[in-house]
């Protein structure tokens, strides 16, 4: 329950609301018991879609009902000819649009849409991209929709260049669109790869981004999005694995090795100790906690 203001109401309003809720409650309970009964009897048919739809359009978070619909679709695909099945899935997409308009942040609705697109005989991916554009116009930060967009882009093999352009359009419209900056951070290594650079992105591309983000914080220096992106552009890549320091203690009869990164010796990485060209056999390496969990410091025992 988010953002619901508590308001003082008159007795009349309270009474009217009570009546309205009693009515809704009756409808909900009636529909749910019918649905559960049908499920028990294995009746996965059009009526199941109708009944579960009545509840979901009001309350799209009832995840069990989305499951029942999926089961119904899988059942119906066994007997319906392709054309009819396509139509049925298409009407499911319209139904989902109604649900999403009512609640654009319902996990269940968005996941069900992925299911429909993955299962319908002839999915229209371009239309889905258009739907994403519409929903992002209503709320440019809706992360459910952004995630669905990535699913569509992946499935429809939309070129990353087009998505890069799209993210620029959003930023030009509002430079504090954090979601769009985030998207660019994922697209840059794909579009301008350079393995010699610490972040895997060519310097030229990074400089262009730098200019873009600079425009943002010159306009509004208090805007967070630009500064986080700026920090990333300026940041260094990961340090390569190396030995920082090596220490031999004659008193306690052990060797200490400090590394630039956390590693886990014994699992994937092995550490061999050689003395005068001869491998020292039976060296057991443990971290300072005497476990084999990842650590920067390893001690021979």
């Amino acid at each position: 329950m988010h953002g619901r203001l508590k308001v003082k109401s008159t007795e009349e309003q309270i009474e009217a609301k009570k009546k309205d809720r009693e009515k809704k409650l009756l409808l909900y309970n009636g529909a749910m018991s019918k649905i559960f009964l049908k499920k028990q009897d294995g009746e996965l048919d059009q009526e199941m879609l109708l009944l579960s739809g009545e509840v979901l359009v009001v309350n799209p978070d009832v995840y069990t009902l989305w499951n029942f619909r999926k089961e119904t679709f899988l059942e119906l695909s066994k007997c319906l000819p392709g054309e009819q099945l396509q139509k049925l899935y298409q009407s499911e997409l319209y139904f989902l649009e109604a649900c999403l308009k009512k609640n654009p942040k319902s996990y269940g609705s968005w996941h069900h849409r992925c299911f429909v697109m993955d299962h319908m005989p002839d999915p229209d991916w371009k239309r889905e991209l258009e739907l994403c554009n519409q929903f992002l116009q209503l709320d440019e930060r809706n992360f459910h929709c952004w995630d669905y967009r990535r699913f569509v882009v992946h499935s429809a093999k939309i070129p990353p260049e087009e998505e890069f352009e799209f993210s620029l359009r959003l930023i030009n419209n509002n430079f504090s669109n954090y979601s769009s900056w985030h998207y660019r951070s994922k697209l840059l290594p794909i579009l301008f790869p350079d393995a010699t650079q610490p972040m895997g992105v060519s310097e030229n591309a990074l400089l262009k981004e730098y200019e873009l983000v600079q425009n943002g914080f010159f306009t509004d220096p208090d805007d967070q999005s630009n500064w986080f992106y700026h920090r990333w552009l300026m940041g260094r890549g990961n340090q390569t694995l190396n030995i920082n320091c090596f220490y031999v203690s004659r008193e306690v009869n052990c060797v200490l090795v400090s590394f630039t990164q956390h590693i886990q010796i014994g699992k994937k990485t092995d550490l061999k100790l050689e003395c005068n060209g001869q491998t020292m056999p039976g060296t057991v390496w443990l971290n300072p906690n005497r476990t084999s969990q990842p650590s920067c410091l390893w001690i021979s025992f």
Partner: peptide
């Protein structure tokens, strides 16, 4: 994990 050091729902998802 993302460019800001935070995490999202799936690989590619925005931090939350």
């Amino acid at each position: 994990m993302n460019f800001d050091g935070a995490f999202g729902c799936r690989p590619g998802s925005e931090s939350h």
